[in-house]
């Protein structure tokens, strides 16, 4: 990893308008958690619905998409990546540095708000908090790696990423049950299910896959994404901004 690349990435990510979205969305989520608390008085089922359905299902992928495309996609888009690629820094190092920043940002802007949402909306001791922290962290790791790879591979990273994160599982998964097994969210939920133990079924925090296959699939997806990103960055073809 390269400290200068990381610093530049952080500045690119948090500078200007993207940062507004990165701060605004968690704030909205926390406000929503406060409302849920006020409406249901800490009812655990409502808290789980908010965390599982909205925070983990929509908010987290969106944040990871914003971060993942923000760390490298904009540079490729406006062509300024050539100045970085022209330096004697291995492409491997560039990808890892950018991924490290993306993961850090995902933890700060997506996973912590997710845990705070659970705590605000209602928690059983800290069990729900831990469960969703584990699920959120795993999902964030995989989503950011995939989205960084996507933004190296294609200029339509945002749209393809969303089609996968939201349409794939919710719509296709409804018709073809096997599709649900190939979903980052289901893999991450397996961890939450294990932590919650026998209460998982009662709170409807269930996953389509077991814990071991889920972790293996997560690792495979992440490794694949990183390898793909490095390889495509080694042979990156710059196209004119469209």
């Amino acid at each position: 990893m390269n400290r200068v690349v990381m610093q530049l990435t952080v500045r690119g990510l948090l500078g200007r308008r993207r940062a507004v979205l990165l701060v605004l969305l968690p704030v909205v989520l926390l406000a929503l958690a406060g409302l849920v608390r006020w409406a249901s008085g800490g009812n655990l089922q409502n808290s789980v619905n908010l965390a599982n359905g909205f925070a983990l299902g929509t908010f987290l992928p969106l944040m990871c998409l914003l971060i993942g495309t923000g760390v490298i996609g904009t540079e490729i888009d406006d062509g300024s990546i050539v100045y970085l690629l022209a330096k004697p820094v291995p492409r491997r190092t560039i990808v890892w540095s950018k991924l490290a920043v993306a993961w850090g940002a995902a933890v700060v802007f997506a996973v912590l708000p997710l845990v705070a949402t659970v705590e605000i909306a209602g928690d059983d001791g800290a069990r729900l908090g831990w469960a969703f922290a584990a699920a959120g962290a795993l999902a964030a790791l995989a989503y950011t790696a995939i989205f960084v790879a996507l933004s190296v591979v294609t200029r339509n990273a945002v749209i393809i990423g969303l089609l996968y994160a939201l349409l794939w599982e919710t719509v296709l998964g409804g018709y073809v049950p096997g599709v649900r097994d190939v979903s980052v969210r289901q893999w991450a939920l397996a961890a939450a299910e294990r932590i919650l133990g026998d209460q998982a079924a009662a709170w409807n925090v269930t996953s389509a896959v077991g814990l071991t296959p889920a972790l293996v699939l997560l690792a495979v997806a992440m490794t694949g994404a990183v390898v793909l990103a490095v390889r495509r960055l080694q042979t990156l073809r710059l196209t004119t901004a469209d």
Binding site: R17, T69, G70, S151
Partner: peptide
């Protein structure tokens, strides 16, 4: 920036 526009 187009990418940010789409995402936003």
């Amino acid at each position: 920036r187009r990418g940010l526009g789409v995402a936003a």
